[in-house]
Amino acid sequence: MDRIERGDQEPEVIRGQHDEQRRGDPVSPPLQQGADMITKEMTIGEIMRRYPQTVEVFARFGLECSDCQIADFEEIGHGAGVHKVEVEKLIADLNRAAGVQ
């Protein structure tokens, strides 16, 4: 959250799109059964925020994404390819852990 001071006016609070994430609040509610499934186009950070239980799945596949600085920008498909992980198996396990099969 940034403050902008303008002369004799009260400081204006500017909220960024990621303020909720910095406070630890969930970005969006978990998907319900039958809703959109996790796909290889989703970012790793987005999935870990929505479904904290997936952190364990990433670790099981050798992806220590919770400590990675680019998790918010890296899509699962790319991360899996870089680490030579079978992306379809990873996505299936992530969806199972998230309860969106």
Rank of each mutant, 00 (worst) to 15 (best):
P11H: 03
I4W: 03
E64M: 14
A98C: 05
M42F: 12
I47W: 01
V55R: 10
G45K: 02
H83M: 04
A80M: 04
L63S: 00
I4Y: 09
P29G: 02
A80E: 07
G81I: 12
V57Q: 02
G16R: 09
H18Y: 14
T54S: 00
E75C: 05
G16N: 06
P26D: 02
C65L: 09
V85A: 05
E10D: 04
Q9N: 13
Y51A: 07
V100R: 05
I14Q: 08
V13Y: 05
Q9M: 10
L31V: 10
I70L: 12
I44R: 00
Q9Y: 12
P52A: 02
A98I: 03
D2T: 15
R23H: 04
A80N: 07
E75L: 01
G77C: 10
P11K: 00
M48L: 14
G79I: 01
D72E: 04
I47F: 08
P52D: 00
P26C: 11
V57I: 13
G81M: 10
Q101A: 15
M37Q: 15
D8I: 12
N95D: 03
C65I: 03
P11Q: 09
E5L: 12
F73Y: 14
P29Y: 05
Q9A: 15
Q21P: 00
V100S: 08
I4D: 06
G16Q: 03
E75Y: 07
K89A: 15
M1S: 10
R49L: 04
Q17W: 12
V82L: 13
L94N: 09
G16E: 01
G34K: 13
G24C: 05
A59G: 11
G81W: 13
T39R: 07
D36M: 13
A71D: 00
D2I: 15
R50M: 08
R6I: 07
V57N: 02
V13T: 08
V100Y: 11
I70T: 11
K89S: 12
T43D: 00
E88R: 14
V27K: 09
V57H: 06
M48Y: 01
A71C: 04
D36Y: 12
E46G: 11
D25I: 07
Q17T: 08
Q53D: 09
E75M: 12
A71L: 02
R15H: 15
V87P: 05
D25W: 13
D72L: 12
R22A: 03
